[in-house]
Nucleic acid binder design. Structure first.
Length: 315
DNA sequence: GCCT
DNA sequence: CAGTACG
DNA sequence: AGGCCGTTACTG
């Protein structure tokens, strides 16, 4: 439903369950897990006992719930849009295609609905990575490129491809005129099929950061290859570590690390780690000072955390 | 829904 | 601005 | 009781 906080609580409980290595024998053992109390323990116990959950089955078979879940698979459509579509009487993807008013990105999201919702095997990500790196060597030499996301966390399959880039020579500045050719070349060789977000060409006047974002759709030339979501992010060298941290995730890991930073009167984002931050409620009175973060390890150190390699960052 |  | 997206 | 990530970034 709309309850954001509850959804987060459920996710935390799920992660706690995944972390639990020993077999669960009793109701009390469940309740002893972090983020699992009465309500969730009851539900988990029912799942263990009956191999299902009456309330969940009833929920999932509701017409609105299953339709909203279907529509949520369209990239570019979120809770509000899917609710609107349902209210307008649409029930199938064909309804959306023929009758719904779609934004440009939603049209792409719908067109490749099946492909985007199919996981990408590691070795395909590796092949895609190779193409981007080779092309970068040709048209924008001197880039350091790291494939992040679940790939860097060593997952056997990935939802999309996340590639982070900066100049090996930290003194060079990220600039549209250098990066647009890379996107263009990738398009020319038939690798990039569509743009979803292309900051490298529509350089906005308002952006203060040097970060450039490209979200698009790519496909390997081999017959039968699916269309894949690819994100290319270009960052200045001084933001490399925090960007690497951010782009590697997982999302829950990032959020807990940012919460910790906040508790320590610091602030952490993909741009950097700041200390001496003064907040009053939600707004910052003082933005604090940027800390020098040459490596991911340095960020862990500032936060008094022992280092965790990417494969241990699922939560 | 759980934590502080 | 609201909505959606990224990890 | 109030928070649950980011003064995150982009679209329309």
């Amino acid at each position: 439903t709309n309850d954001k906080g509850r959804s987060i609580a459920y996710q935390k409980a799920i992660e706690a369950l995944k972390r639990c290595t020993h077999p669960i024998r009793s109701y009390e053992e469940i309740k002893a897990l972090p983020y699992v109390k009465q309500s969730l323990a009851d539900k988990i116990w029912e799942i263990i006992r009956t191999n299902g959950l009456v309330k969940l089955s009833a929920f999932q078979s509701r017409d609105d719930v299953s339709t909203l879940a279907l529509f949520a698979g369209v990239w570019g459509a979120g809770t509000e849009t899917t609710k609107q579509w349902f209210a307008q009487g649409f029930r199938t993807l064909e309804d959306l295609r023929t009758r719904a008013r779609l934004t440009r990105t939603q049209q792409i999201g719908l067109k490749y609905y099946q492909d985007f919702n199919t996981r990408i095997p590691r070795d395909e990500v590796t092949r895609i990575e190779t193409i981007v790196k080779q092309t970068a060597d040709e048209v924008a030499p001197g880039l350091m490129i790291e494939t992040c996301g679940s790939y860097r966390r060593l997952k056997p399959s990935c939802g999309d491809i996340d590639m982070l880039m900066t100049f090996k020579d930290g003194k060079r500045h990220i600039h549209e005129s250098i990066l647009a050719p890379l996107i263009e070349k990738l398009r020319d060789i038939g690798f990039l099929i569509h743009d979803l977000i292309n900051h490298s060409e529509t350089s906005s006047t308002s952006h203060v950061s040097e970060q450039l974002t490209y979200f698009g759709v790519c496909r390997l030339s081999e017959p039968g290859s699916l269309h894949r979501r690819i994100d290319l992010i270009f960052v200045p060298a001084n933001e490399w570590a925090c960007s690497l941290l951010y782009f590697t995730g997982s999302d829950m890991f990032n959020r807990s690390m940012r919460r910790l930073a906040r508790r320590l009167n610091m602030s952490l984002s993909q741009h950097g780690l700041y200390h001496g931050v003064v907040r009053k409620g939600v707004e910052k009175i003082n933005t604090g000072q940027a800390l020098n973060t040459p490596t991911e390890e340095s960020v862990f150190l500032y936060l008094n955390l022992s280092y965790r390699p990417p494969e241990d960052r699922d939560h």
